Each structure stands twice: as C-alpha cells, then as structure tokens.
Amino acid sequence: MVVPARDEEVLLPACLESVRVARDALHLAHPEMHTEVFVVLDVCHDDTAGVVARHGVRAVTSRAGNVGAARALGVETAAEWAGDRGALWIASTDADSVVPPHWLLTQVRLAAEGRDLVVGTVSPRPVDLSPEVLAAWHARHTLSDGHEHVHGANLGFSLDAYLHVGGFAPLPVHEDVELVEAMRCASLDWVATGAIAVTTSGRRTARAPLGFASYLEGLGA
C-alpha cells in the first residue's frame, strides 16, 4: 500500500488505523499473502514521521514536494520490498482518507478475476462541509459501479500494468487521472467500482494545487 503524506500528523492516524483493519481482514481470509504499508513523507515539517513510526509502518522520504513524484517513489519502494515474492498489487490511498474494512479484500478479489486496475470512489466527510456544498458534491458525483471518477485516494493496480504505462508522472496534480487514462488507452482490464467507498477530508486548504480541496472550494464559491 502506498500513502503520500505532507504535514498530515492530524489526519494520518485515522488513515493508518483504517488500513490496519483492512490488512487484518485480508490476512484473515488469505493468511498466505504478504502486505506492507509505505507512507511517503513528502517535504513534511510536522510530526507525520512520528505518526508513521508509532503505527509500525514504513516511512519513505521524498524531497520532491510533488504528489506524482511521491506516489512514484512509494510504488518503486514497494516493488523493491516485494522482490521475488511474485505478482505485486499496489493499493493507493491518501493520508487524509479512511478506507473501508473490505478495501483490500475486494481489490484482491477483482485482481484474481483478471483486473489490472481498480478505480474506487471517494466522498468527503459530511461534517467537513456545509449542507449546500455537500449537496453540490452529490449532484455532481456518481458513487455506483461504472462511475467516471478517478481519485488517487482509492486506486488499485498491478505492478506489471503500472510499469507497462510508465508509472506516475511527476505532476503536482492529476497524476492519478493521467495514470488511469494511460492504462485505459493501453487496453488493460479495468473496473470502476462503487463497492469500496473511501471517505476523505473535506478541508478547503489544499495540499496540492488545484486538487481535491480546491475543487471543494470551487463548489462553495
């Protein structure tokens, strides 16, 4: 699992706890599977590194200040960790997000069915938004199977598929959209599912320019 983080000491604990629950569920069903979490510390100045250490997952340091480069470094490190363990599946979320307990189980099932890419849905925490902005969000988003949205906070893909299209580009925003589009254009087997909804922060202060927070800010304008 790859989780980019920039100054996320407040929200990262909930993310990592949800990932722990998802890992436990996967290991219970598939004890033969190996998993690891890589949190990419992208120019952090707070105690994000301390949070990572206390949760017993792996920290990867990036000085790029760029989410695309951070995600790419996380995948590269995961591939090095996997070594000769066989086929590697990368699950991607964000440090301000909470994944459901069946998040990994569902991705593994879809991968076993032959999928190279799984695109999940993301919704902002209702308590973070006004009723008007929340209504505007839901009016613009489909959260069922076959949805058209792409979020780095809820992606899964095989390492082979990732390498086939050249991986994450070092973009400050929409690196997730570009990767998914490249996989689709390469005629890889993919699915957009509403079965593994991720909840993310509805904050309006952006970590990435023109990213999710900026989009929410636009809805409230």
Results as ranks from 00 to 15, higher is better:
residue 184 R to D: 01
residue 71 R to K: 14
residue 156 G to E: 05
residue 33 M to Q: 11
residue 7 D to F: 07
residue 33 M to I: 14
residue 140 R to P: 00
residue 160 D to P: 00
residue 174 H to R: 15
residue 139 A to C: 01
residue 30 H to C: 10
residue 130 S to L: 05
residue 175 E to G: 02
residue 143 L to W: 00
residue 149 H to W: 11
residue 122 V to W: 03
residue 1 M to K: 04
residue 201 S to E: 09
residue 49 A to N: 04
residue 183 M to D: 12
residue 99 V to I: 08
residue 22 A to H: 11
residue 128 D to A: 06
residue 96 D to H: 10
residue 161 A to Q: 11
residue 208 A to T: 15
residue 110 L to A: 03
residue 149 H to K: 06
residue 201 S to P: 02
residue 193 T to V: 13
residue 177 V to C: 07
residue 47 D to G: 10
residue 121 T to G: 15
residue 36 E to M: 13
residue 195 A to M: 03
residue 189 D to K: 12
residue 188 L to R: 13
residue 159 L to C: 03
residue 220 G to F: 00
residue 166 G to R: 13
residue 77 T to K: 10
residue 60 V to D: 00
residue 94 D to I: 10
residue 58 R to E: 10
residue 120 G to T: 02
residue 148 E to D: 13
residue 94 D to Q: 06
residue 36 E to G: 14
residue 24 D to G: 05
residue 89 W to Y: 11
residue 80 E to T: 12
residue 88 L to T: 09
residue 58 R to T: 13
residue 74 G to R: 04
residue 155 L to C: 04
residue 54 R to N: 07
residue 2 V to I: 15
residue 215 Y to V: 02
residue 192 A to M: 01
residue 168 F to G: 09
residue 158 S to G: 15
residue 96 D to G: 04
residue 38 F to W: 06
residue 168 F to H: 15
residue 176 D to Y: 11
residue 153 A to D: 05
residue 187 S to H: 14
residue 55 H to D: 02
residue 145 D to R: 10
residue 175 E to P: 00
residue 108 V to Q: 15
residue 124 P to L: 08
residue 209 P to V: 09
residue 46 D to G: 12
residue 40 V to P: 12
residue 86 G to I: 07
residue 65 G to Y: 02
residue 204 R to W: 03
residue 219 L to G: 05
residue 143 L to I: 08
residue 161 A to T: 09
residue 94 D to C: 04
residue 44 C to P: 06
residue 172 P to H: 11
residue 166 G to C: 13
residue 204 R to M: 12
residue 121 T to V: 15
residue 24 D to P: 02
residue 97 S to K: 05
residue 197 A to K: 13
residue 115 R to G: 07
residue 15 C to M: 02
residue 165 V to C: 05
residue 20 R to A: 13
residue 156 G to Y: 00
residue 142 T to R: 10
residue 215 Y to L: 03
residue 208 A to I: 13
residue 80 E to A: 15
residue 217 E to C: 12
residue 125 R to G: 04
residue 188 L to F: 05
residue 143 L to K: 06
residue 126 P to L: 05
residue 72 A to V: 00
residue 160 D to A: 15
residue 176 D to I: 13
residue 41 L to Q: 07
residue 93 T to R: 01
residue 185 C to E: 14
residue 202 G to H: 04
residue 211 G to D: 04
residue 103 W to F: 15
residue 30 H to A: 07
residue 113 E to S: 10
residue 149 H to F: 11
residue 198 V to F: 11
residue 206 A to D: 12
residue 63 R to P: 07
residue 212 F to V: 04
residue 166 G to H: 09
residue 161 A to W: 00
residue 121 T to M: 11
residue 180 V to Q: 07
residue 95 A to K: 06
residue 5 A to D: 02
residue 179 L to K: 08
